[in-house]
C-alpha cells in the first residue's frame, strides 16, 4: 500500500499548523476548536455507522456521560479532572458493553429505535437529576488541569486538539486497514460471509460500539472543560442527529469525510445566523438537499467524480 493513504493527513496537519496565524480573532479559533472536537466524535461514530454499518441515533448520550462525569465528579466530589474523565469513559464503555449484545441482535430500524431510546433516557436523566447536574440550566466545569499543568485559553486548546485530531485520524486510518478493521467492514458488506471466515460478528459490533462510546465520552469531557460549562443539550436527541448528519454528509465509511462533515456542519449554524428566524428551515433544507443529491456524502461523491476511491 502506497503512502498516499496519508496524503490527506499531511494536508490537514499543514492546514492546522498555519491556521492560527491566518485566523483574525479568537471567535474563529473557537470555531476551529469546536470543529475539531466534533471531528473526533464523528470519526468514532463513522467507524460504527459507516464502516461497521451499525446505526446509532443515541451517541450524544455517550458524549453527555463524559461531559457530565467531568462536571459532576470534579465539582461535587472534588475528583481530579483526569480521574473524572476516565471515570466517564469507563462508565460510557461499561454501559455500551452491557447493552451491545441485545441491541446488536437488532437490525435497521429496530436498531435505530433502540439506540435512540438509550440516548433519550440518558438525556432525560441528565435533565432531571438537577441536584447533581443543575438540571436544564446546566452547570459550570472547572478548567482542565493535567497534573500541575492547566490548559487555558483558545491557543492552548487549539494545539491540544490539533494533536488529538491528528492522532485520531492516523489511528483510524490504520485501524480500518488492519485485520480488525477489515473484519468490521466485512461484516457490514456481508454478515454471513464474515461469519463463515471466522469473524465473531457480535464481538466485533460490541468492540466498535464500546470503542466509539468511550471516544465520544472522552471528547464530551474535553468539550465540557473547554467550554467551562455544560448543559443537557450535549446529550440531546438533536445532538445525536447532528453527529449522524456529520457522518452522512461527509461520507459514510470515509475517514476524511468525517472531518469534512464535522467542519461543514459546525460552521453551518454560524453561516445561517443571517437568516433571522429561518435558520431551522435553512438547516433542514440543506440536510435534505445534500442527502437527496449526494446520498453517499461529499467525500465519496467527489472522489468518485475525480476517479479515485
Amino acid at each position: 500500500m502506497p503512502r498516499s493513504r496519508f496524503t490527506g493527513l499531511i494536508v490537514i496537519a499543514v492546514v492546522l499548523a498555519v491556521l492560527p496565524f491566518l485566523l483574525p480573532n479568537n471567535f474563529y479559533l473557537d470555531l476551529a476548536i469546536r470543529m475539531m472536537i466534533n471531528a473526533c466524535i464523528v470519526l468514532g461514530l463513522n467507524l460504527l455507522i459507516g464502516f461497521a454499518g451499525q446505526i446509532s441515533l443515541g451517541h450524544a448520550g455517550f458524549v453527555g456521560i463524559g461531559a457530565y462525569a467531568s462536571a459532576v465528579l470534579t465539582t461535587h466530589y472534588s475528583w481530579s479532572p483526569l480521574a473524572a474523565m476516565l471515570a466517564g469513559a469507563l462508565g460510557a464503555g461499561v454501559l455500551a458493553a452491557l447493552v451491545a449484545r441485545p441491541i446488536f441482535k437488532l437490525k435497521g430500524h429496530y436498531l435505530a429505535m433502540a439506540t435512540l431510546g438509550l440516548g433519550i433516557i440518558i438525556s432525560i436523566i441528565v435533565r432531571n437529576e438537577a441536584a447533581l447536574t443543575g438540571g436544564p440550566d446546566g452547570m459550570p466545569v472547572p478548567a482542565l488541569a493535567l497534573f500541575s499543568f492547566e490548559i487555558s485559553g483558545e491557543k492552548q486548546w487549539y494545539w491540544v486538539l490539533s494533536g488529538i485530531l491528528l492522532l485520531s485520524l492516523w489511528a483510524s486510518l490504520n485501524l480500518i486497514n488492519s485485520p480488525f478493521g477489515r473484519a468490521l467492514r466485512a461484516l457490514h458488506g456481508s454478515e454471513v460471509a464474515s461469519q463463515v471466515v471466522g469473524v465473531d460478528v457480535a464481538k466485533y459490533k460490541l468492540a466498535i460500539f464500546v470503542f466509539s462510546a468511550v471516544f465520544a465520552s472522552l471528547m464530551g469531557s474535553v468539550t465540557a472543560h473547554y467550554v467551562g460549562f455544560v448543559t443537557p443539550n450535549v446529550a440531546d436527541f438533536f445532538h445525536s442527529i447532528e453527529l449522524v448528519t456529520m457522518v452522512v454528509i461527509g461520507g459514510m465509511a470515509s475517514i476524511y469525510g468525517s472531518v469534512i462533515g464535522a467542519v461543514l456542519l459546525t460552521a453551518l449554524p454560524q453561516a445561517l445566523t443571517g437568516f433571522e428566524g429561518w435558520e431551522t428551515v435553512a438547516f433542514g433544507s440543506i440536510l435534505m438537499f445534500c442527502m437527496i443529491f449526494m446520498p453517499k456524502g461529499l467525500v465519496p461523491t467527489l472522489a468518485a467524480k475525480f476517479g479515485r476511491r
Binding site: 448528519t245 429561518w278 433542514g284 437527496i292 446520498p295
Partner: peptide
C-alpha cells in the same frame, strides 16, 4: 428522488423535512 438510499440517509432526509416544517411553523 432518494429512492434507493440507505436507511441512515433516508432517516436524515425525513429529519430534514421535520426541521423545515417545524421551522416554518415557528416563523
Amino acid at each position: 428522488p432518494a429512492k434507493n438510499a440507505e436507511v441512515t440517509t433516508l432517516i436524515i432526509i425525513t429529519i430534514g423535512a421535520s426541521l423545515v416544517i417545524r421551522g416554518v411553523v415557528q416563523v
